[in-house]
Design a protein around this nucleic acid. Structure first.
Length: 945
RNA sequence: GCCCGAGUGGCGGAAUGGCAGACGCGACGGACUCAAAAUCCGUUGUCCGAAAGGGCGUGUGGGUUCGAGUCCCACCUCGGGCACCA
């Protein structure tokens, strides 16, 4: 906005807003306005805590990219800031700060691109982010800001890794003591169980007879962090392995979109599957949206059923089924082509066909294999298995619709009761006997179009000792079959999950080094805490070795592998100085974000990752939490994007539960209430060559879009520099000020909805602040200029209604409607010609959480020499929320035909009489007698004629 | 295919089952100005009407109700997630 020369000197312009904002930002920092006291530890200030409830408000911390912030990034941050400011003004001790998730692939790639060490680029980016965020007036406690790349921080990431490495999951934790459910316990307690003989060794030999190496191998098999040689996702294009959660549905990498191949490799895994049940069950404790809970449930993918053993020439084959009740209908088996028994099963005459099919399946990319429109394929092995319920001999096939990665990699095929098996049986002419009699379908399955799934009477389902023929319920059928299987040793009730263990190592440079060394036998040893932090070694050779994206058989090379001076180390781990080799992997980007909220609480503590008392205060369970109901513990409000539904949010819950089991934290879950903010979308424009053009230069004419003379096409998406539609907060702050930007972002719509950015619309909030300013300050002199007379009764009532409404809106994060109410009040004051003296303070205090800087400035003009950050938020006077008279709309047959104004305490008969007496209502009735009159007190009258 | 959401003026969006369209943008008219911008005042769902007033209106079709944007059923469209998961 250009400021005209002849404009009033103290008009609220972009320039004045900036001056006010920078001044108050400095003052907040100097005075430590937003420094939050702890009950104990280095940041303790118990006096300032006494008698105040606490609230922990958390943003998903950003990854500091090289391009800085655009206006889409701070949407959630502004929301949490407003909420935090409001909570402070209503008496809460508020935990609110910001950190940086700065390890990981993007930071490393940016460094490689710019040829600078990632530590340098990361620091520069963090500095830019801090400047941009400060400019928005966010009320963070700056002392608590952390970066995951800071050795003082990752020291504790490594420490937590060591805790996980040095623990095991006791599946019946109740046996010794403690909770009935399973839980993580220190590995020493497992060693003690073996040593005392309470837990037998795998081969039954006494613990004392085992060599150190043998003991180590047994113990390593129990650790929650373990090295495994199993199929992992190898991404040659990135030069690293990645987690299941980082692979997209079409078999490519989340980052970079390179092909990913399943390969057996020796890698670090985290035993998150041990927590599958608790991760699932404890979702019920959380105040999250059903959408996110559904995504997590789906990812964990719990299925109840049974494992059933079939006899075959190559030994027993176990299958998992969710429908043990359909065993009588199992007429063939299908193994995944990769199943280890396939070679042994194939009969001589089938060997060549089987080998061919296996090769064909192996060469298929995941993307092809997952195309479910494809017709099913498979070949018979020539071998037969025995169905345990009826002793029938059934053929064993292999087919790629059975996946090695789920269940046991083998299925019993029940063509009448499973659509996939049905299709396969039809295709290859396999029998489809009916074992249920579905309503309206005959027992002749050749007339069926699909498999039948549901409750129906069983038929042909009896073997003498198990008889389902008389029942109709699938649940009952499952129960009876499971009992029979267990009683006869043919199987056992079982639960299967889609969730896999978490692949935790990356062949990169820019991450936390593993606090692990290997001895000469290749056995891993955790470093003692005294060796932490294990610093990331300095080197110029930080580029990862990447490969042709399609080169499946390339092998990963960690950058740290090249640093001989670092990898070879002499250490005394309790049995004298010995040579070791360091682990040359680094942790994935998710490691640092698995626990950062805990470090915010006690960022400078060098003895603990967080002081236990401090953790209890901010995160502990509460019998009566905010809002009056019990609070199971965790962050009170966590705001961030939905894209982390199954990555960060699952990993962080897992780590937190381990820390809980080991007694390091008091809360079962890290994030009690999760709120997913929407995205700011922006239009991007492409010219005829499909090249993006600067969105800011595009103009609209007659419904079409032009860049210069060129016709361009519009599309909506996220903002980004690469698609030339990024608007930076700096631009908007320069033109209008941060307060206008904050209001605009909040007024655009509800916080959880995505909305398109329109720079054109920003001016609306600017005008609001300008009017607000003018209602309190003389534009010519800059002096306070409120009306001398006190507010009239109507104005008073409006103020108190507004207070009431704004409070409700703030509590519910409805900042858009809070702003609308304040604008309404301000518009009313504008009509009065200014702000009556007695309502200036409540007005300014209500604006304060939203437009913090201008509110502070007005507050000081009102004669206060301290910040309003801790002033009490106005409280509505209940007496002013009710009125003497009330206006009723009067409907005739549901249509509004008139209005009456009557005394608020008039009884129903009186209201009815007044309504019927209204001339417009009488006209509408046209003499007809009312059949019925509905009166909703204080609300509405409806006359049925 | 399955699981979540969402469909309201020219646009962003408001509405404990009770006056649909708060608030903002834009547009139109006016004030100020030589003029424009900025600022201020007013109008603005749509159709009929000079007006008073009236008809129609929340994706579609049914239903519940004195009364439905809101609740129920079926469907359509869009967005997101999962997907041969046994």
């Amino acid at each position: 906005m250009t400021t005209p020369d002849d404009a009033p000197k103290f008009r609220y312009t972009g320039a004045l807003a900036q001056e006010i904002e920078l001044r108050w930002q400095d003052r907040w920092e100097t005075e430590g306005t937003f420094e939050t006291p702890n009950p104990a530890g280095p940041l303790a200030d118990p006096d300032r805590i006494a008698g105040r409830p606490k609230v922990f408000v958390l943003d998903m911390f950003p990854y500091p990219s090289g391009t800085g912030l655009h206006v889409g990034h701070p949407l959630g941050f502004i929301g949490t800031d407003i909420y935090s400011r409001y909570k402070r003004m209503t008496g809460y001790n508020v935990m609110y700060t910001m950190g940086f998730d700065a390890f990981g692939l993007p930071a490393e790639q940016y460094a490689v691109q710019t040829g600078q060490h990632p530590a340098i680029t990361t620091n520069a980016n963090v500095t830019t982010y801090r400047r941009q965020l400060r400019r928005l007036g966010l009320s963070h406690d700056a002392r608590r800001s952390v970066s995951t790349t800071d050795p003082a921080y990752y020291r504790w990431t490594q420490w937590i890794f060591s805790q996980i490495f040095n623990s095991w999951y006791d599946t019946d934790g109740g046996r010794d003591a403690g909770p009935e459910e399973g839980r993580a316990r220190p590995i020493d307690e497992l060693v003690e169980q073996f040593a005392s003989g309470r837990r037998p060794t795998p081969d039954g030999r006494p613990w004392s007879d085992l060599s150190a190496a043998e003991r180590g191998t047994i113990i390593d098999g129990y650790r929650l962090a373990y090295v495994s040689d199993a199929p992992v996702n190898w991404c040659p294009g990135l030069g690293t392995v990645v987690a299941n959660e980082e692979v997209t549905a079409d078999g490519r990498s989340d980052r970079g979109n390179f092909p990913v191949f399943k390969r057996n490799m020796r890698q670090w895994m985290m035993r998150i599957t041990a927590y599958a049940d608790r991760l699932l069950a404890d979702l019920d404790l959380l105040d999250w949206t059903d959408a996110i809970k559904a995504m997590q449930r789906n990812w964990i993918g719990r299925s109840e059923g049974a494992t059933v053993h079939f006899q075959s020439p190559a030994g027993p084959i176990s299958v998992f089924t969710t429908r043990p009740d359909t065993l009588f209908g199992a007429t063939f088996m299908v193994l995944a082509p990769e199943h280890p028994l396939v070679d042994a099963l194939a009969t001589p005459d089938r060997r060549q066909v089987v080998a061919q099919y296996r090769q064909q399946a192996a060469s298929k990319k995941d993307i092809d294999r997952q195309d479910d429109t494809r017709e099913k394929t498979g070949v018979a092995t020539g071998a037969y298995a025995i169905n345990p319920v009826n002793g029938e001999s059934i053929p064993i096939w292999i087919a790629d619709y059975v996946l090695m990665g789920y269940g046991t990699g083998a299925i019993m095929a029940v063509p009448c009761g499973d659509q996939r098996d049905f299709e396969f049986a039809r295709l290859y002419g396999l029998p489809i006997p009916a074992i249920q009699q579905p309503p309206e379908l005959g027992l002749d399955t050749s007339t069926w179009e699909n498999a039948f799934i549901g409750d129906a009477p069983y038929v042909n389902s009896s073997n003498g000792s198990l008889d389902l023929n008389r029942i109709t319920s699938v649940a009952e059928g499952k129960r009876l079959t499971n009992e029979w299987l267990e009683a006869n040793g043919h199987g056992v009730a079982a639960v299967t999950y889609k969730l896999r263990d978490w692949l935790f190592s990356r062949q990169r440079y820019w991450g936390e080094p593993f606090p692990v060394v290997y001895d000469s036998h290749g056995n891993p040893h955790g470093l003692p805490d005294s060796e932490l932090p294990l610093l990331l070694p300095e080197t110029d050779s930080f580029s990862p070795r990447t490969f042709d994206p399609d080169d499946e058989f390339s092998n990963p090379e960690s950058p740290l592998d090249r640093l001989e001076w670092w990898t070879n180390v002499e250490l005394d781990l309790g049995d004298g100085p010995q040579s070791y080799r360091r682990d040359t992997n680094v942790m994935p980007q998710w490691a640092g974000s698995c626990w950062y909220e805990l470090r915010y609480l006690d960022p400078t503590n060098e003895q603990h990752f967080v002081d236990p008392e401090v953790e209890r205060y901010w995160m502990g369970p509460q019998e009566v939490g905010n809002g009056g109901h019990p609070h199971p513990g965790g962050v009170d409000l966590y705001v961030g994007g939905v894209e982390h539904a199954v990555l960060h949010l699952l990993y962080a819950r897992f780590w937190h539960k381990v820390l809980f089991d080991l007694g390091h934290v008091s809360s079962k879950e890290p994030y009690y209430r999760l709120f997913n903010q929407g995205y700011i979308l922006a239009a991007a424009y492409k010219d005829a060559r499909e090249i993006y053009v600067e969105a800011a230069e595009v103009i609209e004419r007659d419904g079409a879009y032009y860049h210069g003379d060129q016709l361009v096409t519009r599309e909506w998406g996220k903002m980004g520099k690469s698609i030339k539609n990024a608007v930076t907060p700096d631009d908007i702050c320069q033109s209008y000020g941060a307060d206008t930007l904050r209001l605009y972002e909040m007024a655009m719509g509800p916080l959880d909805a995505s909305r398109p950015w329109e720079t054109r619309d920003v001016v609306g909030m600017y005008r609001f602040l300008q009017r607000l300013w003018r209602n309190v300050v003389d534009e010519e002199t800059g002096e306070l200029a409120v009306l001398d007379n006190p507010a009239d009764a109507d104005t008073q009532r409006l103020v108190h209604r507004t207070i009431n409404g704004v409070r409700d809106d703030m509590d519910a994060l409805r900042f858009n409607t809070a702003i609308a109410k304040l604008i309404e009040l301000n518009n009313h004051l504008t009509k009065l010609g200014g702000c009556p003296a007695d309502i200036a303070e409540p007005l300014v205090l209500m604006v304060a959480p939203l437009a913090a800087h201008v509110a502070e400035e007005l507050w000081s003009k009102l004669g206060h020499d301290t910040s309003l950050a801790l002033e009490p938020f106005p409280v509505a006077d209940p007496a002013l929320l009710v009125t003497d008279t009330v206006e009723y709309p009067v409907q005739v047959n549901g249509k509004v035909r008139g209005h009456i104004t009557v005394a608020a305490d008039l009884d129903a008969a009186g209201v009815e009489a007044a309504a019927l007496a209204d001339p417009k209502v009488a006209t509408s009735l046209a003499g007809a007698a009312p059949k019925k009159v509905i009166i909703v007190p204080g609300r509405m009258v409806n006359i049925v004629a």
